[in-house]
Write a protein that binds this DNA or RNA. Structure first.
Lengths: 236, 236
DNA sequence: CGTGCAATTGATCTAACTCAACCAACGTGG
DNA sequence: CCACGTTGGTTGAGTTAGATCAATTGCACG
């Protein structure tokens, strides 16, 4: 019996964002019992492959992930990033297979939540039902928050603001964070080249909007950033 | 009592795609009873406004809709199109308000499905639960199917293919259809200008890939279109 | 029968891409 | 411990895909 005891939702840093929200002690322990197993991945390691049979949702316990497919010309197309307390995998329900690869951006851990099991549990626990839909809605909102077909400057500004609000959501500083993403990840997600991303970051730095040291980033002027993003003021 | 009798799921053309899938007679009648009311809209009429309080999902009975927001500079940013048997509105759950305007592209009808009521019903009807999640997953998949940051040609080709498979899904011809969208709608969704869209359509026509007469469109060579979508042909 | 909107096509212009050089940090093996 | 390749990031110069500006046509409709 050398197996490491399964970590519980009770001592999980993401519990206040994730499925346990609104559940009582007993319900959380049911949820816990249902989680198939936790996966710990190193930077660059892959969790899911395109066309893998859909079986489960995944919740990020710590770290971060990206989903991506390969274009016909071999270039990576990034579809989304997933941070602490966010769920992913439901894109696989309709076709019963995952429509993308998923890999870890840094040392990370996810909880695997078998689809059939949670479908059963939500029938007994209405508040779990609501929280699951809320987390799915969150994913839609995240995707909506970064227009990927406007001017490059707008895209990057909107992307940084979106990251900011997601980090804030997970209890971290909304203005100072270490990006787990490379410039290439950002570029691929936004549909730009690394050079353009790099130049824009320099531009924002020179405009006193952000401070940058490699992956370490500090948003100094959110209002200016919103103007760069060309968003209606009340959007954030 | 001059009110028009509410139309039932039973005689709805979209029933085989929509929430009733997998439900028995009794369950469908419960679902029916729950639908708040049907809205009939003319072309251009709006159903939802940005920041409206979230209360309901909507299912397209016939016709089509688009969701959009206005940029700071007043230009319309289109987020999605919704066709027969597709659901929309769940983007509003997280923030308890809709993050976009929704308006009809042609004479259309939607069923309003109050969130609290359906949350109750899915607890009693597990297969409704599954179908709801499947329809939400469908939305994710649709959004994934059209990359909006590749070359213009790839975007338009992928978009046409995505339309094709959605029309097929709703029992219509996958190769011959009348677009309810204007060139401007397509351009705004894909992040292009109408001129570029128009030129590409001409290019596809000249390449014998499609036939076009205004909004009437015929896909003549799906394989070629897939090549256009995956990779610009002239790169070979 | 004009007025206005949607679409097409042509001529220029520019934002972002490509190609290229360079630097810094890091790990690995001799 | 240093030499070296590798990976990630920045910056510059020239090129191009798609935007902008502009003119024209066709069609719908009051």
């Amino acid at each position: 019996m050398s197996e490491v005891a399964k970590k519980s939702c009770v001592n999980c840093a993401a519990a206040s964002l994730c499925l346990p929200v609104g559940l009582d002690q007993a319900e959380i322990s049911h949820l816990n019992a249902m989680i198939k197993r936790q996966h710990i991945l190193k930077r660059g390691q892959s969790l899911l492959h395109y066309t893998d049979r859909f079986n489960s949702f995944y919740a990020v316990r710590y770290g971060s992930f990206k989903s991506a497919t390969l274009n016909a010309d071999g270039r990576e197309q990034i579809w989304g990033f997933y941070f602490v307390g966010e769920l992913f995998g439901f894109e696989g329900i309709e076709q019963e297979q995952y429509p993308y690869d998923v890999l870890a951006l840094e040392k990370s851990e996810v909880c695997e939540i078998p689809y059939n099991d949670i479908m059963q549990l939500v029938n007994e626990v209405p508040s779990l039902q609501k929280q699951l839909l809320k987390l799915m809605s969150h994913r839609f909102c995240v995707d909506l928050s970064t227009p990927r077909n406007n001017a490059a400057e707008e895209r990057l500004a909107a992307f940084l603001l979106s990251l900011s609000s997601r980090f804030k959501r997970s209890g971290m500083s909304p203005t100072e964070f270490a990006l787990p993403l490379t410039r290439q990840d950002i570029a691929s997600y936004l549909g730009l080249t690394i050079e353009t991303v790099s130049r824009l970051i320099s531009k924002f730095r020179k405009a006193q909007v952000i401070d940058v040291d490699g992956r370490q980033m500090k948003l100094k002027d959110l209002r200016k950033l919103q103007i760069f993003a060309a968003l209606t003021a009340d959007k954030f």
